[in-house]
Every structure is written in C-alpha cells, then in structure tokens.
Design a binder for these strands. Structure first.
Length: 583
DNA sequence: GCCGTTTTCGGCCCGACTGTTTTCAGTCG
C-alpha cells in the first residue's frame, strides 16, 4: 500500500468523522497526518516493516495515527473506519462536495430524510421537501440544486499552465481599472502548485465597489457566487472559481501573505504570532492586547514582525520551510535564467513537429547554449521510432550541423531509448555508446507489478550508457496514476551508478513531482529539468518545470542543466557520496 | 488526535459572507 493510498484512507476517516460532528481538532490531526504521509518521501509501508516506532518520529504523526497505519498495512483496514462505514454509507461524502453544503447540513439531510446520494437529494429538493427542514429554506434548496450540477460535472482541478492563461487574461482585464493601485495573484497559483482549484485576485483600491463592478465584467463569468464589502466570488462557465479581495494599502502585504497560504503554512505562522503576543489576520499584524497595528504593507514586514524571513511562495506548504528558516538554511531557489540547456526533445524524424535546425534556432532564441535531440527509439512504433540505422544517420546530420555552427551552440547526439517490457534497452549498447546523452524511459508495460517495473528501471540505471531516466513515474495529472514503482530503489540505483533523474516540465506530467524531487535531492541525485518538446513552442514549458523544482526547494546547483555541457558531462556516471553535496 | 524555549494538560488561526434568523450558525478560504 503506497503513501497516497494510506493518506486517502485517513482523509476518508476524517470526512466521515466530520459528517458525524466529531471534535474538529481530531479531524485536523487526521488530515494533518494524511498530508504528512502523502508528502513523506519514504514509504510508510517500508517504515512499518522496518521499525514501526519510527513512525511517531515524523512530525504530525502521533500514537493514534501510527497505530492505525500499522493496522492498515498489516490487516488492510482500520477498525474505526470499518465501524463508521457501517453507520454512514460512503456515498454521503459526495454530498460534501456540493458548494455551500458542509458537514452539518449534510448530516441533517441524512438524519432527517435518510438522504445518502446526490440523486436522492435532487429529488427531495425538486419536490420541495428540503425547505421544510429547520435551518433550510427556499434559497438553500435552490443553492443545493445548482450545486448538484457543479458537483456532478466533476470539475477537476486545472493545470497550473491553464490557470496561468486565465490569470494573465484577468490581469489584462483589470489593467484599465483606474481605481486599482496594486494587483497580485495569490493562492495556490502563486505557490506554483501543479493544479489549481481556484484563482485568488488581490488588489489595493480605495473604492472596492468600482473594482468589483469591473471584475464582474470579466468575460465568461457564468455566476456571481457572492459579493460583499471587500470580497467577491464568481464562477466561469467551465466551473472554475475566481475570488477577488480588495484591501487598503497598509494591508496589502498581510493580505498577500494570508491569501497566498497555504492554509497549513498560515496556521503555523499565526500560532507563532500568538506565542509572541501578536495577532495576525489579512489586515495586518497587531498587538494581541492593544490591537495596535505593527505591520502589513509588505509581506517582508509581516514575516519580519514574527522574526521570520520572507519565504518564497513555492515553499509555503508547512513542510520543511520553518525548520530551514530556523537553521538559516532557506535555499536560494533556481530561476528560469539559470537553465542553460534542454536535454529532452523530439523532431520530425519521429513524432515532433519541427526539424533539428528549427529546434536549435528556437532554443538559441531562448538563451540556451545546448540541446539534446532525443527522438524515440524503434519500440515506439506509433511515433515511428528510430532504429540504429536511422539514428546514426540523424547523428551524422548533427555532427555536420555542429561543425557548421561553431562552438557558440552545441547540439547533442541523444536518444530517448525505451526500456522494453521484458527488461533491457530498445537499442544495443554499441549504438548507445556512441550517443552524447541517453534518456531511458518506459512507454509500454506500465501496469506491470511493482517488482517488475522497478527491476526494469534499476537495470536501465545500471547500463553504463544511460545518462538519465525520463518521466520516472509515468504519471499524467488528472489522467493516469504513476507506475507502481519502488522509488527508493530507483534513488539508490541512481545514486550508486551516478545517474540523473528527469523533472519533465510538460504541465501535464511534471514528473518527478515536487516531493520526489526533494527526496532525490536528499540522495544527492542531480535533477535534469527537460521540456520533452515536440515543437519549437514546446520548449517554453521549461518554466513550469522550474516552478515545480522551486517547490521542491531545488537550487541551481541541484539541477544539472544549469551547468554548461562540458561541466555536466563530467557528472554522468560519477557515483554520489551520501553526504556529498552536488557542486 | 497532536504537541510542548510558558505547558504532559489544555490548548489548537481568523475573518468575510450568506441565509435564516431576530443575534447567529454554517461554510469557505
């Protein structure tokens, strides 16, 4: 059972308990535990197998959650959860996904009317029965009916890249509004989370109503969810929600800090404030007893008032940022300008849309100094993958190109070589040995059992000519789960054989993810951020990869392709010392 | 249920907005 599945079980436990009106702090403990487990790089199952007492050493996991982890792994279930499911059918959890319907109201519907499914709820609303319940009325009934279609539309979180398009359009839309003096997009968008559930727009203005009127004219708004003195929420036709907050200048930093989150990060920040006799909210930092305003105009001021550094938004997840700050080791995160090469891309020779020359020109225009052409190998028949002959002919073309263009820019002879279903590489070693750069990847047999997939990847890492594993877990956001792979075994093998791991920058992949990149960094494994571009435009996705790398706390020295090719080349095949930082 | 540079018991972040109410509970972020 992997960490995500264990975390999911605890989340379900918390949801059901919330439905029953359990102590909210107990719920938070379970939810914190779930998040901690999901973010933990070492597998909980292997910790339990090794020494269960190590579980409570993890911050946020106490005796209760640890015992339930052990029971879950050893017996496949948690007794308490089983009992709960006997009392409350799992389907009621769907009711909680309706906007505006929380655990209290859902519990009343279940208790008073035995409603357990969305269909039953819809029928009851349409029959006008729900409005008869205490605490409900006509408006609530209408809201529920509206909400059911939203919940049923299964509006999943959108890719950061799409959120960025909406954010940019919103910025443009608000630009002519004279009442606005400052504007920032906060929330998970600012933290660079791989998917977004909504967008938070924060502005400074003296006349909030004018701003709200202008905001309300953004195209594609289907519904205004709410509008008050300082806050307005709308829903777009695709179901995506945008929240607007208007604050005065002296509160901008406090509001930005607050609405950037994450929620868990803010819980810690506020408890720190409390310990210092301060109170912090979206309006500023105040003396808790006198209410005297202390700070709030900038985020830096807000954190400084709490003796904390300005955390990069990408790190604000209540993971390790507070410990790192306390030790004065908050990393200086990688930036897009640090990247000087791109080591994974395709051309018209297989499934790409541009020639080598076109890719080269586009990469140069982006300020890169080298690229690797890594078309697919023969096994990927759909993409017309390369056999040894075609590959060698492509490499001759690259040699010619490099000779003609001198030393200012280098095109590397590469290949994305498939790791075959039965194990082994798709091209012979004598071919691979002639390459400058070999990325190995899995495209077939993704559903194989854990041991088999792991063995395939580990063996690829042992191959002396392989440089890097591409998209190491195979996940596609919102579409495909990662392969069942023992990632720690992959890390061990990469470390031992001096190989690198890719952070595929495609916004649908972002693989390795932030948590695994951070874990790879601990092992000292260099990360390669690659576009996996199939067109000249595709090269631009690099920035999404950099954003994910920042969330992992990576610095430019943790990322291999911030080096020149000649520096990077020397790193390949050099085993990493456990305590050795990559330089 | 978790946790401790005040604490092993007693706390646990805080405010905006809505709807159903006559002063506030529920929901959300």
């Amino acid at each position: 059972m992997n960490n995500a599945q264990i975390a999911g079980t605890f989340e379900q436990l918390a949801d059901l308990l919330e439905f029953q009106g359990a102590n909210p702090f107990r719920l938070r403990a379970y939810r914190n535990g779930a998040r901690t487990i999901r973010d933990h790089s070492e597998s909980i199952e292997s910790i339990v197998a090794d020494d269960p007492s190590r579980l409570t050493e993890i911050d946020g996991i106490g005796k209760g959650v640890a015992e339930k982890c052990v029971a879950l792994i050893e017996t496949g279930e948690i007794a308490q959860l089983k009992e709960l499911l006997d009392e409350v059918p799992k389907s009621v959890l769907a009711l909680l996904r309706i906007p505006g319907l929380g655990p209290k109201k859902a519990a009343i519907l279940f208790r008073e009317m035995q409603i357990t499914t969305l269909e039953q709820l819809q029928a009851a609303c349409e029959a006008g029965k729900v409005r008869e319940l205490k605490g409900f009325a006509k408006k609530t009934e209408e809201l529920i009916l509206q909400g059911i279609s939203i919940a049923a539309a299964a509006n999943e979180r959108i890719f950061w890249a799409l959120g960025d398009e909406i954010a940019t359009a919103m910025r443009e839309h608000l630009r002519p509004c004279k009442a606005i003096s400052q504007l920032e997009l906060a929330g998970s968008y600012r933290r660079g989370k791989e998917t977004l559930g909504d967008l938070d727009v924060l502005v400074v203005a003296t006349d909030p109503q004018t701003v709200m009127n202008h905001f309300g004219e953004f195209p594609d708004i289907e519904q205004t969810i709410g509008r008050g003195e300082t806050k307005m929420s709308v829903r777009l036709s695709n179901g995506f929600q945008i929240d607007l907050r208007v604050v005065p200048e002296e509160s901008f930093g406090a509001a930005l800090q607050y609405f950037t989150g994450s929620k868990d990060h803010n819980v810690v920040v506020r408890s720190r404030a409390k310990q210092r006799g301060l109170k912090i909210n979206e309006w500023g930092v105040f003396n808790a007893t006198t209410d005297e305003y202390i700070a709030g105009a900038t985020e830096k001021d807000v954190y400084a008032a709490l003796d904390m550094p300005l955390f990069p938004p990408e790190l604000r997840e209540a993971r390790r940022e507070f410990d790192l700050a306390a030790e004065g080791e908050l990393p200086r995160l990688i930036e897009i300008q640090d990247v000087c090469g791109d080591l994974h891309m395709h051309t018209t020779e297989t499934d790409g849309k541009a020639t080598i020359l076109e890719m080269m020109a586009a990469a140069r225009a982006q300020g890169l100094s080298y690229i690797a052409i890594t078309d697919h190998s023969q096994r990927v028949t759909m993409a017309h993958g390369l056999d040894a002959d075609r590959l060698r002919r492509q490499w001759e073309e690259i040699d010619d190109l490099n000779q003609r263009h001198g030393k200012a820019f280098t095109v590397l002879k590469g290949i994305e070589c498939d790791i075959l279903e039965a194990g082994g590489m798709d091209l012979q070693d004598d071919v691979l040995s002639e390459a400058d750069w070999v990325v190995a990847s899995i495209h077939y047999g993704q559903k194989q059992p854990r041991s088999q997939i792991t063995e395939r990847i580990v063996n690829a890492l042992k191959n002396p000519y392989v440089s890097c594993i591409a998209h190491p877990t195979g996940r596609l956001l919102n579409r495909r789960e990662p392969y069942d792979v023992d990632i720690e075994a992959v890390f061990e093998a990469a470390k031992t054989h001096g190989k690198m791991l890719e952070l595929n920058a495609n916004p649908m992949r972002l693989d390795l993810n932030d948590v695994l990149c951070a874990a790879a960094k601990k092992y000292g494994i260099p990360i390669v951020i690659s576009s996996d571009a199939h067109s000249t435009d595709g090269l631009a996705v690099m920035r999404y990869g950099v954003l994910q790398a920042r969330r992992a706390g990576l610095t430019s020295s943790d990322v291999a392709n911030t080096r020149t090719w000649s520096q990077l080349h020397k790193l390949i095949g050099k085993p990493v010392d456990q305590d050795d930082q990559v330089v």
